[in-house]
């Protein structure tokens, strides 16, 4: 296959994965106002669960150690990855989403991120520690009997279809009365509580769904590149996703998709191909993160609503019998 096409195919799959991540984050942060600074952890858990559910039992001579090893067929590992990530999201939510200031939410999630990173990186029996897991089988490849090149196209299509389904679902959720209640909680949690909304429960559901999306995205990544280790999910990665969402337009799934294209795909991926120079392996990623951070702060300053802002809600057209009869009176009263 032509190298350019192969590269574009890879970028497309990465883009689909980033989309799924930013949509999940959008439901949490953009719609429900949940500050989950450990978002990438749920992506990682989804990846590890998917990988170890798809891998056969750990062979002591292969040099890898990990839990599970069920050798399950696609798409069970992927769904399991999403569900386990969602379950972990609920666990974190129990601590972070109680009716506390957003500072606590942020502190708890940052700490959870550090802890999970610590444990997965250090405790080798779980997911092979810092070395990570590798050799995850490509989904359906042997069953379909495709050669490598054709399989690349197939996987892009598969990831695209999954992304599309997840897009339709998240759009439906965002624009449903459920999504409306989430937005109201984001705007003023006390007021929504005063209208009888169980705000904790709503936020827990948003947390679980968002983490499910993160988990599926992680699962897709490990199915695609067949390996995963802790260098792929540092705190900086969560930050890139927040930057993508805020620059693209929080509260708007199209904005999230635009942000995923601009920040992680074009910006992050393209700069991987800068010419090499001494120390460039630490300097380039460091400067990249600096620039993303500056972009985010500049966006918050000049265009806090992002490039594609949240749209006003649309409602079915209803004709009133006698509209506007009180308007004049109101204008008088309000001076």
């Amino acid at each position: 296959m032509d190298a350019t096409i192969a590269y574009l195919l890879t970028l497309a799959v990465y883009y689909f994965i980033f989309n799924i991540q930013t949509w999940g984050l959008n439901l949490q942060f953009g719609v429900a106002g949940i500050l989950n600074f450990a978002y990438i952890i749920f992506f990682a858990v989804g990846a590890y669960i998917t990988g170890t559910f798809a891998l056969p039992h750990a062979d002591p001579f292969s040099g890898q150690t990990y839990f599970f090893g069920f050798a399950l067929p696609f798409p069970i590992p992927l769904i399991a990855g999403g569900l386990v990530a969602a379950a972990l999201g609920l666990l974190v939510g129990v601590i972070a989403l109680k009716r506390l200031r957003s500072d606590y939410m942020a502190i708890v999630t940052v700490s959870v991120g550090a802890i999970v990173y610590d444990i997965i990186g250090n405790y080798f029996p779980l997911f092979n520690g810092q070395d990570g897991i590798s050799g995850v089988p490509f989904p359906l490849q042997t069953r379909l009997g495709l050669d490598y090149n054709t399989y690349q196209w197939f996987f892009m299509g598969l990831a695209g279809v999954i992304m599309l389904i997840l897009f339709l679902i998240i759009q439906r959720i965002t624009h449903s009365p459920f999504g409306r209640t989430l937005r109201s909680i984001r705007e003023d949690q006390d007021v929504s509580e005063a209208f009888g909304k169980d705000t904790f429960r709503y936020r827990m559901i948003a947390m679980a769904i968002g983490c499910f999306y993160a988990g599926v995205a992680g699962g897709l990544l490990i199915e695609y590149i067949s390996a995963f280790n802790p260098s792929g999910w540092t705190a900086g990665e969560t930050f890139v996703l927040f930057a993508a969402l805020i620059i693209g337009g929080r509260g708007n799934n199209w904005g999230a998709a635009l942000g995923a294209l601009l920040v992680p795909v074009i910006f992050q991926e393209a700069t991987r191909y800068l010419p090499q120079f001494p120390n460039s392996d630490t300097l380039v990623p460091a400067l990249r993160n600096v620039v993303v951070g500056v972009l985010l702060i500049v966006t918050l300053w000049f265009r806090p609503q992002g490039l594609l802002p949240e749209r006003k809600a649309k409602f079915p057209k209803v004709q009133l019998d006698a509209p506007e009869n009180k308007q004049e009176e109101a204008d008088v009263a309000l001076g």
Binding site: S102, L283, N289
Partner: peptide, 26 residues
């Protein structure tokens, strides 16, 4: 700015500082 967004600013600042440190001192 609402606290929620101040926290994002601070989160961004922490990554910027950390990476500036990395860029300067290796």
């Amino acid at each position: 700015f609402p606290v929620l967004f101040m926290l994002i600013v601070m989160f961004g600042l922490s990554l910027i500082l950390q990476n500036v440190t990395l860029a300067i001192w290796g």
